[in-house]
Design a protein around this nucleic acid. Sequence first.
DNA 1: CGGGACGTTGACGGTCGTCAAAATTAGTGG
DNA 2: CCACTAATTTTGACGACCGTCAACGTCCCG
Lengths: 220, 220
Amino acid sequence: MPVGLSDEELERIDALIGMRLKIKRGEKLFREGDPFCNLYAVRTGFFKTCMLSGGGWAQVTGFQMAGEIIGLDGIVNDHHTCSAIALEDAEICAMPFDRLEDLSREVNALQHHVHKMMSREIVREHGVMLLLGSMRAEERLAAFLLNLAQRLNLRGFSKSELILRMTRQEIGSYLGLKIETISRTFSKLTDDGIVEVKQRHVRILNLDKLRSIINKINQL
Amino acid sequence: MPVGLSDEELERIDALIGMRLKIKRGEKLFREGDPFCNLYAVRTGFFKTCMLSGGGWAQVTGFQMAGEIIGLDGIVNDHHTCSAIALEDAEICAMPFDRLEDLSREVNALQHHVHKMMSREIVREHGVMLLLGSMRAEERLAAFLLNLAQRLNLRGFSKSELILRMTRQEIGSYLGLKIETISRTFSKLTDDGIVEVKQRHVRILNLDKLRSIINKINQL
DNA sequence: CGGGACGTTGACGGTCGTCAAAATTAGTGG
DNA sequence: CCACTAATTTTGACGACCGTCAACGTCCCG
């Protein structure tokens, strides 16, 4: 949240996000079709959002960790178009969107913050489109790991060691690859000495090499 | 724009979008890195937005036609992360974003409209992720044609006849396919009697069949 | 200990990318 | 208006990458 707010403004924003919920692993925060009322800020834990692709098959559209916002998809039609599922026990803040709109009319900084959040999500999705549209399996997985590591690093965790909260299946769905390809690609990265993988525990051994996988595109 | 606005409010919104620009085919409305000042509403013509993928290679992230908004990506970092290029001579309205924020603080309906626009873009991109992540070439092209036809139909054009304003290259970039694959897939749809293609002129001969290509996924 | 979810590995095949060449169209200047 | 070159599209042959199917291995939890 931006700085430069008066105490009174901070207090009012605080009142807005008063409602905190605990969500257990595997539970749904909301599902497609649910009426849209709240945005949700992740306080602790880890979520995935996914949508159904016609025939009951789910496509993961994103992973969210502490500080990130879930539910922006619901604004346009007053109901959600995807489900949000906790990948580990989590705690979230529910923010009633109508009150958020009310308050952001009075607090400029909040208004701008909301706009930035939505714009950030749009830009993130552009990046995913790039990934899905033009990268190969190894590049996709490398980009995915680097992105996770960077976001975890911003939150004070190691930038070279991370625990995957999602299954290979979910990684594959997000990256547009099958689970076997994810597994094989992890094996290849391991053989090349770039990462060390033990189940969901990943250690990045050679950050430069991992980065260079993505930048191979540059050399074309 | 939603209804139920007073004359005075309409007038103020009108003042906001006073600035109209003509853009010639091939010209850029903005490019990546440009400072962000305005959102743009397409009045006439056709645009593509695309971003560079590291090595000078462009990925098309969307096509915009009359009534659609361009530039939302720029809000988060005060500069654009993609380029917007006219695919035919076009006319657009530039809306200074800071004034849009000012005004939307006073006109509830405008505020909500802005939020919906951004949410709609997020949902659209979810759809593209689904397409890129889990559809095969024929399904992608079918979905693309149906989407174009539907949007054109909303604007009063035929739902079975359309003119592609973009090259095969650009379609391929958007759909994550190479130009040869686009060409081959058009040929296949033609052989199957589903569409008739003459250069950029496409006539949909069998809408049901075209739809069923996508719904094949359901049968898995 | 045993069942089930999850992950890994191998063999094989299909889809789509790559390379190359021809065909068609668009653009330019005489 | 036409000739000529550039750009775009189409088609074919071939191969790489990834999906599919199948079997096996591992971990978790009752």
